[in-house]
Design a binder for these strands. Structure first.
Length: 313
DNA sequence: GATTCGTGGTG
DNA sequence: TCACCAAGAAT
């Protein structure tokens, strides 16, 4: 692995990455885990009774949605569908309705699909294997690693937006990570991963919590940071972000806004909804039609034969 | 790899 | 006010 003289050129290593490998220093995870033990939030999906299914529900809901908005919906879901088979037995439209205003309602559909797959392929138990998790609808690299780590205590690099920011600052010395996750980031996360399984799982949760509570995107609180003294970004004088502007997300007037308005009508209705009720949410007919077609194509809306629409049955 | 996909809080 | 941000995934 480290033989430098033979075969092809060695993989390029940044100085920051080399520093992360230095063996003599206290490993980065030690002070971060200690901080976590004293400062972790008491979140319901961290309780043992949440189980792997509770962890999975929380991870779906937390994809791009803040904790404060997830909390009440999470409690409702777990109470209503305490096991994957309970959700799998429901119509997908009920998942979409119960999703409420969390946003990105395709996640509700995918979570329902994951429950069906778990029921059919895994005997109703959330699989423990990373590859099997990854094969579930709506589960990507991050969520598979998160469930395997948080629910089953396995050793995986859990690279979410919080961890990426912590590593960008503490190790690489820049304010923000790249827009898309790079191979260098994955290498770095792998290099920092503690050997021992339980320690690795705690590091995953701890580094994520540090990014969520202290090493935040704006108004970071370095005075509360357990690794401020060795933070490369802070040592460099906290230089501003230089790369390409972080892509903003305009919303007003987009198809997404129209889709949201259409789906809100369908969520609020008991049964099928007439075309006229949907037409009322947006006056521009071309965009309105495109948005509705998109919802139907995504399986979020079901057109009926009589010109009515409803959540998928 | 760049886009698309909701919603609401915040500085 | 409004741009930014929030435990990403799929295409």
């Amino acid at each position: 692995m480290t033989a430098p003289t033979k075969n092809g050129p060695p993989a390029p290593r940044s100085t920051a990455e080399q520093a992360a490998h230095s063996a003599d220093a206290v490993p980065l995870h030690t002070p971060v885990i200690a901080w976590f033990e004293a400062n972790a939030r008491d979140l319901p999906w961290r309780h043992p009774e949440a189980g792997a299914w509770g962890v999975m529900i929380s991870e779906f809901m937390l994809q791009q949605t803040p904790v404060s908005r997830v909390l009440p919906v999470y409690e409702q879901w777990l109470a209503r569908w305490p096991r994957p088979a309970d959700l799998a037995a429901e119509a997908p439209g009920e998942a979409v309705r119960a999703w409420g205003r969390l946003g990105y309602p395709r996640r509700a559909l995918r979570l329902h699909g994951a429950a069906v797959a778990i029921t059919e392929r895994h005997g109703g138990e959330v699989p423990t294997d990373h590859a099997e998790l990854l094969a579930l609808p709506g589960v990507g690299e991050y969520t598979a690693a998160a469930v395997a780590s948080f629910a089953f205590g396995q050793r995986h690099a859990v690279l979410d937006t919080n961890v990426r920011r912590v590593l960008a600052r503490a190790v690489t010395g820049v304010r923000y990570p790249p827009n898309a996750t790079t191979a260098a980031e994955r290498r770095l996360a792998a290099a920092l991963l503690p050997e021992e399984e339980g320690t690795a799982a705690r590091w995953a949760a701890a580094s994520m919590e540090l990014g969520a509570l202290v090493c935040t995107a704006r108004n970071e609180s370095c005075h509360r940071c357990p690794i401020a003294a060795r933070c490369a970004w802070r040592q460099a004088g906290k230089p501003e972000h230089d790369g390409p502007p972080r892509r903003g997300q305009t919303y007003a007037g987009t198809d997404r806004q129209v889709r949201g308005k259409l789906l809100a009508v369908l969520r609020a209705a008991e049964g099928p909804v007439a075309q006229a009720a949907l037409d009322a949410v947006w006056d521009e007919p071309v965009q309105r039609g495109r948005a509705l077609d998109g919802l139907v194509a995504d399986g979020l809306v079901e057109p009926l034969e009589d010109g009515m629409y409803r959540l998928p049955g």
